[in-house]
Simulated assay, not measured.
Amino acid sequence: MSALECRDFATGYVKQRPCVRDIDLTVEPGEITCLLGPNGAGKTTLLMALAGLLPRFSGDVEVDGHPVRSGRPRDAVRAGMVLVPDDRALFRQLSTVQNLRLAVRQRARRGTAVDEIIGYFPSLAKRLRVDAGRLSGGEQQMLAIGRAVLQKPKVMLIDELSMGLAPVIVDEILAVLRRLTDEAGMAVVLVEQHVHLALGIADRAAVLVHGSVALRESTATLRADPSLVERAYLGIDAVGAGPS
């Protein structure tokens, strides 16, 4: 059973003019899929629509075999799909520990929630009482991902993970994502501008150009032949018939 199945998906901001269309995307449990493409290609729009924050004009979305209704963020979360947006969407005036505890529905789990996230991100241990708005960019990204982890997602959608962060912090966060997928079987869909970072951590990649998939392939293949990604960005050849 696939963690995420997206078929004939179209979305956008005006129904008569979808800016993302004909998207077929399959992500397996324990797999990281990166979405690549130039600015304006529709990557963020696609994540927002998958998470229910934008309407779906056509197509189907399933999480772990269960259909997700269009434009229903709560439906997406209940199905097991959680979005980490590019602005991280933290409660900036609340402390790190308060942000984490808000993500836990069951009161009994709140006592262990913080320890669980510190196990993934030890550098947050000394920042638990600090307001989220006063954290560094890297600490905020760790907190945002940690908060998402506490919701026990089957699929985590992450938009622009590395934006504004130092390479050493990005490497630390990517290592945690790999650990989560390998150990917990979580699936990740990662939007990333830095192609080499994305191809280094992901299992599969899809390149979006003008709102459609121009290339879909394993990252092993793309690392072996970087020109495939370059040609997709430039719109050269209709490559995209590879496995989803």
Rank of each mutant, 00 (worst) to 15 (best):
R179S: 15
S58T: 14
M81A: 13
S95D: 02
A214W: 01
G138A: 00
G133H: 13
H194T: 13
H210A: 14
T221F: 05
L83G: 07
D24M: 06
M1V: 13
V189M: 14
L234Q: 00
L143S: 12
G40C: 12
Q16M: 12
V63S: 10
A187R: 09
A198Y: 04
P153T: 06
R78I: 07
A206T: 14
P85H: 13
G138I: 01
L124K: 03
H194K: 15
K154P: 10
D64K: 07
T44V: 04
D182Y: 05
E230Y: 02
T45A: 04
L83C: 04
D225F: 05
H66K: 15
G235E: 00
D75I: 09
S136H: 08
E217K: 10
V239P: 12
V63E: 13
P243L: 02
D203E: 08
T26W: 02
V213H: 01
M186G: 06
D75H: 15
L35C: 04
L143I: 09
A238Q: 13
S212Y: 04
L143Q: 10
A148R: 06
F9V: 03
Q93P: 04
V170N: 09
R21F: 10
G137A: 06
G185V: 12
L53V: 03
L83F: 04
A166C: 07
A3V: 06
V104E: 11
K43T: 06
I145V: 15
G146F: 00
G12H: 10
C34G: 10
T33L: 15
R231A: 14
R74H: 14
E172A: 14
P29F: 08
E62P: 03
D60W: 09
E139V: 10
V97N: 01
V189E: 10
V189C: 10
A166I: 06
D225P: 04
T219N: 03
D87H: 02
L177D: 13
T44A: 02
I118H: 03
R56I: 06
I158K: 02
R92W: 07
Q93C: 09
Y13M: 02
A41E: 03
N99P: 01
Q98P: 05
G240M: 00
S218P: 08
S123Q: 12
L174G: 13
L199I: 07
A41W: 02
R101I: 07
L165M: 02
A10D: 06
A10I: 07
L36T: 08
